[in-house]
């Protein structure tokens, strides 16, 4: 069998500059430069800071990926780039870089969907997916339940957050209880010594009425406010805030509502495989609870390693590989990045 085409993927939708190299579902390189440190003192991703960092990192990250894979640029058969969704200015750096690379190499360029890329990353971990799959994507930038019927061409959004992304909720709650940004790892660490049942925080959009209108949607603003109210009440009453208990109870509320709705989506859509991805999927409690509930429901759970869960170029290369394998046409040279690219558009 002839060797599968070598696909280079570029990702710049948020604060990670990623360049990955992939053949089929085989990972060759996954180079990432993160600007997360530059955002720490602002308590969240600052778009202009992220865009500046992307421009500084794009060529060095490209070189690093080639070295990691032990290939030359001239070996590359096609290029894939995140066309959206994401931060507008950040996306433009990657798209412009990818277009220039396509010109320099005279190779086809595919502008692809970031969200579907997260699902494609799983193929690099455990081999080809058997569609349909339900994907639970949780990160600082997005919180979605997708149904992917064909990784290269057909995906739909079943539900999403109506306000904060799960990762943002972690960041904001971390700040409330005096923990650092990014909130995810710090809350997880604090929660390890806490009792998740100590405080009953609300589960957003799970009431009977909400479940008819927002069956697969999420909301974390009410949870965040409930935590703030609880902490302030304790402070007002002069009671020391039990940070581990607050962290554990908050984390449990997020994990519960995420996994409950994702499992429900699998059951109601008759889908037997779930993919868990996105940076917040690194959270051990979310991983464990998803595993537990999938097992109980007879759902096969697939999740890539952390470096393929967070934003990266390999996931974009993986989706590019699927698109190339299907023989789909490259994107036009004049395509634009789209900060709100719908998930139904896998390829632009």
């Amino acid at each position: 069998m002839a060797e599968q085409p070598l696909i280079l993927g570029i990702e710049t939708s948020c604060d990670e500059t990623g360049v990955g190299l992939v053949r089929g579902t085989t990972l060759l390189a996954n180079a990432v430069a993160s600007s997360v440190e530059e955002h720490v003192r602002f308590g969240g991703v600052v778009p202009e800071v992220a865009s500046r960092a992307h421009l500084e990192a794009v060529v060095p990250t490209l070189r690093r990926a080639l070295t990691e894979a032990g290939v030359q640029l001239s070996d590359v058969d096609a290029i894939a780039v995140t066309a959206g969704p994401g931060l507008a200015g950040a996306l433009m750096v990657g798209v412009s870089a990818a277009k220039a690379l396509a010109i320099a190499l005279d190779k086809p360029l595919y502008g692809v969907n970031h969200l579907v890329g997260h699902v494609a990353a799983e193929q690099l971990e455990n081999g080809p997916l058997t569609e349909p799959v339900i994907a639970l994507l949780v990160s600082g930038g997005h919180t979605e339940i997708l149904e992917v019927d064909d990784i290269a061409s057909s995906a739909q959004l079943l539900g999403q957050t109506l306000d904060d992304a799960a990762g943002e909720a972690f960041d904001k709650v971390a700040r409330l209880i005096g923990l650092k940004y990014p909130g995810g790892p710090h809350i997880q660490k604090a929660a390890a010594d806490g009792d998740p049942t100590a405080i009953a925080f609300p589960r957003g959009l799970t009431s009977q009425r909400d479940m008819s209108r927002h069956r697969y949607d999420f909301s974390f603003s009410g949870l965040k406010t409930a935590v703030a109210r609880w902490v302030e009440t304790a402070e007002r009453d002069g009671v020391p805030v039990p940070v581990p208990d607050v962290a554990a109870a908050f984390q449990e509320a997020v994990a519960d509502v995420l996994t409950r709705k994702a499992v429900l989506a699998c059951q109601e859509r008759g889908v037997s495989t779930m993919v868990l991805a996105g940076g917040v999927a690194a959270n051990a409690r979310i991983r464990d609870l998803t595993k537990e509930r999938c097992a109980a429901a007879g759902i096969e759970l697939r999740q890539p390693r952390l470096s393929l869960c967070t934003d990266n170029g390999a996931m974009i290369a993986a989706l590019g590989a699927a698109v190339v394998e299907r023989g789909l046409p490259p994107s036009p040279a004049s395509f634009a990045s789209d900060s709100s690219l719908p998930v139904t558009q896998v390829l632009v």
């Binding site: 202009e48 865009s51 500046r52 992307h54 421009l55 794009v58 060529v59 490209l62 070189r63 640029l73 507008a88 200015g89 433009m92 750096v93 990657g94 412009s96 870089a97 277009k99 220039a100 690379l101 010109i103 320099a104 190499l105």
Partner: peptide, 19 residues
């Protein structure tokens, strides 16, 4: 203006590196 400016610089830097 930063966003447009970066489009040209990203392209020039990548062209230079790739060629």
């Amino acid at each position: 203006p930063f966003t447009g400016l970066r489009v040209g610089l990203a392209a020039a830097q990548v062209l230079g590196a790739a060629l």
